[in-house]
């Protein structure tokens, strides 16, 4: 149905978004790749030149890098496990005929709309603070020592905060998927004497596979870039205990002002994201028909 002229018009309509996205992603990426092989420090601009793979070598030799890499994977993996398992359970519960469905959904979805710095600051100050936090007050109520959450257990604390933010997203998607399951199928299984557990295992869970796949895929994209929560709470500390790869690169660029090293980190992050994306797409791509 498309003539030559509509085709041409269509090209002109698509062009602007392709061009701006290209300028936004590909050009800076090429610049980052270029910087990553240069000596480039904002604090000593007179010294510059090619340094080969030195910036990369610095990264791989830095113990902080391996810690940051581990922390990044811990954060992504930990949040995924918590949100998918709890998300399935809560979706199962909300899918039951309960009173006040509408209000319940509103309460459950709320954390997702809280901007990361506010979410982090609520947990840091009102809950995890060793003197004034609610957890400390509860601990004192039981005569126990308050736990120094962000000092003693920085990564688990950050994972808990991020999981709280993303749990609504997982729950909402799984609930939406669950509601498209026909009740006749479940009723028939119930009539045939299938237990609640086997109904879950053989009917509900297979039906949810696609939704779980989508949750994992999309959350991974966002979780690999988690930044605001760490910036607000621990600033990557104590020491480097809660530094993730994005945060480490941010520190190299903005604090240490070493553009060359930060750029090398950026390229490593791209490669890491591609590896993760490749495995994700391969292992779960079969559930998705794009």
């Amino acid at each position: 149905m498309s003539t030559q002229s509509t085709r041409l018009a269509a090209r002109f309509m698509v062009a602007p978004s392709v061009i701006v996205l290209f300028i936004w992603m590909i050009v800076p990426l090429a610049m980052t790749a270029y910087f990553s092989f240069r000596l480039y420090r904002l604090l000593s601009p007179d010294r510059s030149g090619w340094v080969g793979f030195n910036n990369y070598v610095w990264f791989f030799n830095s113990p902080d890098f391996w810690l940051a890499l581990t922390n990044t994977l811990l954060l992504v993996g930990g949040v995924l496990i918590i949100t998918v398992i709890l998300g399935v359970l809560i979706a199962l519960l909300l899918d039951q005929p309960v009173k006040g469905q509408g209000v319940l959904r509103i309460l459950v979805i709320a954390p997702f709309f809280v901007m990361p710095p506010v979410a982090a600051s609520i947990w840091e100050n009102l809950f995890m603070h060793p003197q004034n936090g609610l957890f400390a007050a509860i601990a004192r109520g039981f005569g126990a020592q308050p736990i120094l959450f962000l000092e003693s257990y920085p990564m688990p604390s950050v994972i808990a905060i991020v999981a709280w933010e993303w749990l609504p997203f997982a729950t909402l998607i799984l609930l939406t998927a669950m509601q498209s399951l026909s009740s006749e199928q479940l009723e028939a299984a119930e009539m045939d004497g299938a237990s609640a557990l086997s109904r879950f295992r053989y009917i509900i869970l297979p039906h949810l596979t696609r939704a779980i796949t989508v949750v994992i895929l999309i959350q991974t994209i966002f979780l690999l870039g988690i930044f605001g929560e760490i910036y607000t709470t621990t600033q990557g500390g104590p020491g480097s205990a809660s530094t993730t790869l994005p945060y480490m690169i941010f520190k190299q660029a903005i604090v240490a002002k070493d553009i060359g090293r930060a750029a090398a980190g950026g390229i490593i992050a791209v490669i890491l994201a591609n590896i993760v994306a490749y495995f994700l797409m391969r292992s779960i791509g079969k559930h998705l028909d794009a």
């Binding site: 996205l21 050009v27 690999l224 994005p246 553009i259 980190g265 992050a269 791209v270 994306a277 794009a290």
Partner: peptide, 25 residues
């Protein structure tokens, strides 16, 4: 279809990778 997938793939690029040139520019 390829164009749409390419656009989606730009979302998978970590922001830190393009942060430095964007910051300097």
């Amino acid at each position: 279809k390829d164009l749409l997938m390419w656009m989606l793939s730009t979302k998978m690029m970590p922001a830190v990778a393009v942060m430095i040139p964007i910051y300097l520019l």
